[in-house]
Design a protein around this nucleic acid. Structure first.
Lengths: 229, 229
DNA sequence: CGCCAGTTTGACCAAGATCAACGCAAGTGG
DNA sequence: CCACTTGCGTTGATCTTGGTCAAACTGGCG
């Protein structure tokens, strides 16, 4: 999995970097993309786009966190994805949005119009590759989450959620939880109460320390044993 | 969702067609792709590629059905996807395969080497677009399945599974089930027994008729009511 | 200080898993 | 051709996990 560098810039380019050596033309591609994009600011719980809207653009998180959610007619909510700095979202090209996107905390987002992006793609293979890599990354993430939701216990889900966040954290031992418990629950297919209980259980077993918006990982190894199994 | 034409050819191009008018250069793109591909035949339950292998190629189903599975160390299995005629699979470009692919029934598959595909992509925007469309389609499918696995009851899962298959079936009222009950169970995150019970329940309520490898939809409307809700 | 949203904990309940038995059709070998 | 096996499918009885409901707690913030 792609790791964030320890020192982050606030540049809109953040997250575009690939682990391998940059290919020729990549910088130009990034500049071209930045030129068609708009930088936007959203406050906590503000909607970025809504389920059912037409999707004339896609986005990338510059700072903060975004949740991609689906609300069912009976009120049940599902969170498909949490997006952090560097993550792209809203790439799908369906006629209308299947999901809505909301800021979990105050966030900065680059928004790219789809039509202009298409033109760039057709004229610049490097842009095409960037976009495809991002899409493939989303696909891989979605598929590994499918395996998680399909066949795992509540404990396993919570453990691998913490590990997933810690992979993306600056400090491997400390995980920030910008979202509330019911967001986590809707992401993991559990209830907020069960998430609480599993966190408390891990706390009782001295695997983690818990506070409402952050967790300290005391025994990563134990967590991994729970999460993989 | 994209519907199969009523009359199918056995051409490797099957499934490439898009609902809108073909873009210029599309035929050339398809021919170029076909030239780098190999046509392969697999028998029931035969492995197409294995979890952990290096993924130097991607595939497309020409005939039959393929399941994309992940086996966990403790024996629990998860099926990420069933692929039918026209579906692409193994697109991800990770160092090694996260999932394995197996023929559900005897199947014909086109296999495309990744390196040659990359060259085509860089030289031909139409090929790039085709590949990206397929990837986006897989992504959309994975995300809507996430919502399904996250927050639904056994009955809802079975109902929407039947509807999903009927969307892709020639005869809207008759669904073929090439896979066994435990495949369905591993796909829906249930047990084979629960799948059976839900099917029996729908049968009892005269919504469907069931035989081991096919289902007749008597009351599609009821099924939709169960599936959406 | 008191309020409020979010978190935590407990008691109870139900959906679905597990375990077990049986049915049934397609091989297989004598 | 018929016993026997084998792999699925179906059904029932019981148990467990996690959901539901309710109440107490906590930390920010006006």
């Amino acid at each position: 999995m792609y790791r964030q560098p320890a020192h982050r810039s606030q540049s809109a380019h953040e997250g575009w970097r690939t682990p391998d050596v940059a290919r020729s033309g990549e910088l130009e591609a990034l500049i071209a993309l930045e030129q068609i994009g708009t930088r936007l600011r959203f406050s906590r719980n503000q909607e970025i786009y809504a389920q059912g809207e037409s999707g004339g653009f896609w986005c990338q998180v510059v700072a903060g966190a975004v949740r991609i959610t689906k609300l069912r007619s009976d009120g049940r909510r599902h969170i498909a994805e949490f997006c952090f700095t560097g993550d792209a979202f809203g790439l799908d090209r369906a006629a209308e949005r299947e999901f809505s996107a909301e800021a979990v905390v105050d966030a900065v987002v680059m928004r790219y119009p789809r039509a202009a992006t298409e033109r760039l793609i057709d004229n610049n293979p490097v842009v095409a590759r960037l976009l495809r890599d991002m899409t493939l990354k989303s696909l891989a993430a979605a598929q590994s989450r499918l395996a998680l939701l399909g066949r795992t216990t509540a404990g396993e889900r919570v453990a691998s959620f913490l590990l997933e966040l810690s992979e993306r954290s600056d400090d491997r031992k400390r995980v920030e939880l910008p979202m509330c418990r019911c967001d986590i629950a809707d992401y993991l297919g559990l209830t907020a109460e069960t998430v609480c209980r599993e966190l408390s259980d891990l706390k009782r077993r001295k695997v983690i320390e818990v506070s409402p918006h952050s967790v300290r990982l005391l025994e990563r190894f134990t967590l991994e044993a729970i999460g993989d199994e």
